[in-house]
Amino acid sequence: MSRSRTAMLQRIREAIAGTPEPAPVPRDYRHTGDHPPGSPAVVELLVDRLVDYRADVRVLAPDELPAAVADALRPSGSVVLADDAPAELVDAASASTTQLIVDRRSAPLSAADLDHIDAVLTTAAVAIAVTGTIVLNAGPGQGRRAITLVPDRHLVVLRADQIVETVPEAIARLEESDTRPLTMISGPSATSDIELSRVEGVHGPRTLIVLIVR
């Protein structure tokens, strides 16, 4: 290994030599919320946060999903799905007039291909109510990171039981993701770089639509 590696580790060891053992980390912060995952209060909190980020949100019964998906896709000429998307989502998307494109891991679409696709339809791994965050962990129905990034509309379908109240609850669930890439999404892309005034929609999808199935 490199000379700098040896030198740096040596310098660090000398720098911290004689440091007393630091105190154990106090973890007196909230680990769980006031309400169980998926409870109406948690769903309501997530909706409130997402609306605050100017995402479009709908809470619906399972039998309302196909119509809601078709509805959300109507403005889009084309939509991309992961090759392991659940059948009910594929069926719902097929029912719309939108052109359906599947991103196959064996023959992935290029960034240029994705740039010509209007929307993406995915599931998610976890959602955090208190921060309005949706987490993708490359699990079934979520696809490669690129498909949720390049198209301009992202339609996410969440099950209520995937919604937890606090950040620690979500991190605990995500530990199972092992080393798969994670993307945490809290509203559409945004910037506050010009005079601290928030503008939604810069490089990532400018429209985020969340359908929550009770």
Binding site: I128, T131, V167, I171, L182, T183, S186
Partner: peptide, 29 residues
């Protein structure tokens, strides 16, 4: 990994004054 539960709360609120920043990417190798 569990330490993220602390720092993903501390950083966005202190930094941009948001409950959470719009995007956080995590990758491993």
């Amino acid at each position: 990994f569990a330490d993220l539960e602390v720092f993903l709360q501390l950083l966005p609120r202190s930094s941009t004054g948001e409950r959470m920043n719009p995007y956080t990417s995590l990758w491993t190798g």
